[in-house]
């Protein structure tokens, strides 16, 4: 039975490995996309404009209160026409088809982004006010202040939360398998179907996910200690 998971023509080892690489790629790009959205909407939530705050509040409430699968269906069935609609405004009349990877990244990324928004908002609020004031007093430009003073502190404060968002995002990518993207979940389903060994392949898939989870857990631990270098916890 185990020859089924060897590498080569008769085994599914290489296919599963490719599936794992696909899972990692789509999770990473979703997290990155989510962080961009998260930063944008976190700044909306902290802005003085009532409209921007309302938009951000609406986005996080809807995305966090609605099943991930429903969001994926929305973008899978409606994403292509939405992009074509926008392209039409800019004068492009052709047909655009989005790849499952792109749709997956947008779908899981916008779910991930809702959670990132809250993490980043919390981290910005946790930076002591004095840091902003000190930078202003020194006559720093706003861009320099954000880059040199605020960003490093936000990164340190947000990292544990981003680690949690990563774990959730990684698991959410399994849902993109319904759109046909061949990642771990899809690949093990195909293998299970054509060999009639679902138990074996789903067990392998469980171990592949646990492997990624464990590795990334260590990665985030290391990143946390790197970003906390030179930071002494105040004793209370």
């Amino acid at each position: 039975m185990l020859e089924l998971i060897t590498f080569g023509d008769t085994g599914w080892g290489d296919e599963l490995l490719l599936g794992m690489i696909m899972t990692i790629m789509v999770s990473t790009s979703s997290l990155a996309f989510g962080l961009v959205i998260g930063t944008l909407f976190a700044s909306f939530k902290l802005s003085n404009s009532l409209i921007l705050r309302a938009i951000a509040e609406f986005y996080t409430t809807v995305v966090r209160g609605v099943p991930e699968l429903l969001v994926i269906y929305l973008l899978f069935f409606g994403g292509g026409s939405a992009v074509m609609y926008i392209a039409k405004i800019f004068g492009y009349m052709g047909y655009i088809e989005l790849s499952p990877f792109t749709i997956g990244t947008i779908a899981v990324g916008s779910i991930s982004g809702a959670y990132s928004t809250e993490v980043i908002r919390g981290a910005i609020l946790a930076v002591p006010k004095g840091q902003f004031e000190a930078a202003k007093t020194l006559g720093m430009k706003k861009s320099i202040m954000s880059l040199k003073i605020i960003f490093p502190q936000v990164a340190r404060l947000a990292l544990p939360g981003i680690g949690n968002v990563w774990q959730v995002t990684l698991k959410d990518t399994a849902l993109i398998s319904v759109t046909g993207l061949v990642e771990i979940m899809r690949q093990s389903k195909i293998a299970a179907g054509s060999t009639h060994e679902p138990f074996l392949f789903y067990t392998v898939a469980i171990f592949l996910y646990l492997f990624i989870t464990s590795i990334s857990y260590q990665f985030f631990n290391r990143a946390e200690s790197k970003f906390s270098k030179g930071f002494v916890r105040e004793s209370s």
């Binding site: 990518t173 399994a174 849902l175 469980i206």
Partner: peptide, 23 residues
């Protein structure tokens, strides 16, 4: 706890629904 929290729910469902039915 480690296994459940580290794997997607969809995979757990398939494991129970299709995987166990194999035997």
């Amino acid at each position: 706890i480690y296994t459940i929290r580290g794997t997607p729910l969809l995979l757990q469902l398939f494991f129970i629904y299709y995987g166990l039915a194999q035997f």
